[in-house]
Computed example of a mutant assay.
Amino acid sequence: MLIEDQWFTVELIDDQTYAISEYGHWEKVHSFLLLGKEKAVLIDTGLGIDHIKRITDQLTSLPIMVVTTHVHWDHIGSHEQFSDFYVHELEEDWIVHGIKGLAMEQIRKDIARDITLPVPESFDARIYQPFQGQPAGLLKDGDTINLGERELKILHTPGHSPGHICLYDTSCGYLFSGDLLYEGTIYAFYPTTDPQQLVQSLVRIAELPVRKIFGSHHRLGLEPEIFIEVKKAAKFLQDHKLIKHGTGLHTFTCFSIQF
């Protein structure tokens, strides 16, 4: 084990890339720390049950830029610990004024349920508040982030949320897919989701030449062969006119989509 910790699990993807996971919560959330020669990028900051900066401080002394895949509570939990954080331009309002379409009562219920590891004394789900704050900057499709001999490309992949992004590590061939693709149920049934955009985004990433896909939940790391199933799923859903709210849960070999 890289770091002994009660809440976070740190796993080495390669010598410049770490997964920081919260396996004690039912969502099994992953954040990712990517190191370059000049700076580091932290992709999302997790649930906020415990402070992720305590972990990143042990992993690097490089300045850290936080890049947000999307502004949902389980991805921005420790944003308050970092001043240099970025979101897609379509979700600036969400990070500043609050997440749209999610009731506080439901958020607090979701963060408190099915916890299997001890949580810090500072955590109290009854008063949990998703982070709000002013980002250091905004992102758009096609932007690049240079870490020093390592470059990330921003892909706007809406559907799960309006400003959802994936990050394509062109140096390593890694795709950090956020909540667009992971092994489990992909959610597109909220009023703020868009089923058509979600499927279009899945088709877009399925054309990328990747070595590994890292989603933000559940199993850590997927092989690029999953893109074959993604393309089949998209065609099936399109052919059967299922890409709309209310058609329910659609299960495929490696994942499900709920509209």
Rank of each mutant, 00 (worst) to 15 (best):
F236G: 00
V119Y: 02
Y182C: 02
R204T: 02
L35H: 04
Q6D: 06
Y128D: 09
S171R: 08
Y86N: 10
I205L: 04
D74R: 10
T116W: 11
E105G: 04
Q129V: 13
F255N: 10
I145T: 00
G137F: 02
E11Y: 04
T253Q: 14
P209Y: 00
L237Q: 03
D15Q: 08
H240K: 11
K100Q: 15
D194Q: 13
T9K: 15
D239V: 05
I13L: 08
K153E: 04
R113W: 02
Y190W: 11
H250V: 00
T192F: 15
P120Q: 05
R150S: 08
D57T: 11
L12Y: 05
I64C: 11
R108I: 09
H97N: 15
M104S: 13
E223C: 07
Y187I: 09
L175I: 04
H218W: 11
L147C: 05
K212L: 13
Q16N: 06
L175M: 04
S171M: 05
K241E: 04
K232I: 01
K140S: 01
G178W: 00
D44N: 15
E105W: 04
L34R: 08
D74T: 06
L181W: 02
G159A: 06
S201K: 01
D84H: 08
S61Y: 07
L117F: 08
G101S: 15
A112Q: 10
E223Q: 10
T56M: 08
W94A: 10
V41W: 07
P130R: 03
